[in-house]
Amino acid sequence: MLEVRDLRTGYGGVEVLRGIDLSVAHGEIVAVLGANGVGKTTLNKALSGLLPLASGSITFDGRALGGSPIAAVEAGLIHVPEGRKIFPNMSVQENLELGSYRRGRAGRARNLERVYDTFPKLRQRMTQMAGTLSGGEQQMLAIGRGMMAEPKLLILDEPSLGLSPLLVEEMFDLVKRLNADGLPIMLVEQNVVQSLEIAHRGYIIENGLVTMSGSAAEIAADPDLKRAYLGL
């Protein structure tokens, strides 16, 4: 579904990604893991067309992408950014409707019902200003807005960031449910343990390079990862 080969990009003259290779197949949850500052958000921006590629290629659903956020969205590659990036002075429903501005407009009413069925709290707050929601509700809204675009692949950038432990559990359960309904998900996270518990495969990024990849079980059992991330 998604094939990334020798991807290099950065900011100004600074190269952040130094030759990334990764893929996501139909039906998978793929975890992309690493600490702050290793290039995870830069990768998401490159995949979404927000950063030009210095070299390499991005192929999504059989077509070449790179450098055009409009082309990425129209192809069905939908990115829920780190920090939610909702519109605080607009209502919950207005935020959701904006998710179908470029893609999914014909199915807007049907998709709204699907989002409200997935997140009953958003139905209760549909006329409320988005900026007055709790952190967990804002994350629901950001994911719901992504669902409105009828994604073929959903990229979730740090969805557990800033949430309480209970809401983190709910967020990972939600990712599993969306995937069980057939949606491929690329889960970009610092939360290594819980991400590998629900993912099919994973990649570890360090200093702009993939340093480890394989099945989630293989990565979770790797002694180097346990030392680096879990202190074991």
Rank of each mutant, 00 (worst) to 15 (best):
R110N: 10
R84G: 10
L230W: 00
E15S: 02
A142L: 02
G62Q: 10
Q93D: 07
L98G: 12
G99H: 03
D117L: 08
Y101H: 06
G144P: 01
A31S: 08
L196R: 00
R201Q: 08
V32F: 15
R201H: 09
F172H: 07
R123V: 08
P165M: 02
K45I: 14
E15A: 02
I185A: 08
G12Q: 08
M1T: 13
A75R: 07
G27F: 10
A71T: 11
V38R: 04
R63C: 03
N44T: 15
A109M: 05
V168R: 03
R108Y: 01
S55D: 15
L17K: 03
I70S: 12
R105S: 04
G34L: 01
E197W: 05
L133P: 06
G99C: 05
V175D: 02
I58H: 06
I204G: 00
F60W: 15
L153S: 13
L156V: 00
G66R: 14
G83T: 12
E206R: 07
N95V: 02
I20D: 08
G19N: 04
F87Q: 08
K85F: 05
A142D: 00
R123F: 12
L47G: 12
R108E: 06
S164V: 04
E94V: 15
V16M: 08
P223K: 01
A180S: 15
L47Y: 14
L167C: 04
V192N: 02
S68L: 11
S164H: 02
Y116K: 02
A109E: 12
Q124K: 11
A142P: 01
L167P: 02
R18V: 09
R177E: 09
K152I: 12
V38Q: 04
L133Y: 04
G13W: 03
V188N: 04
E169I: 13
L17D: 07
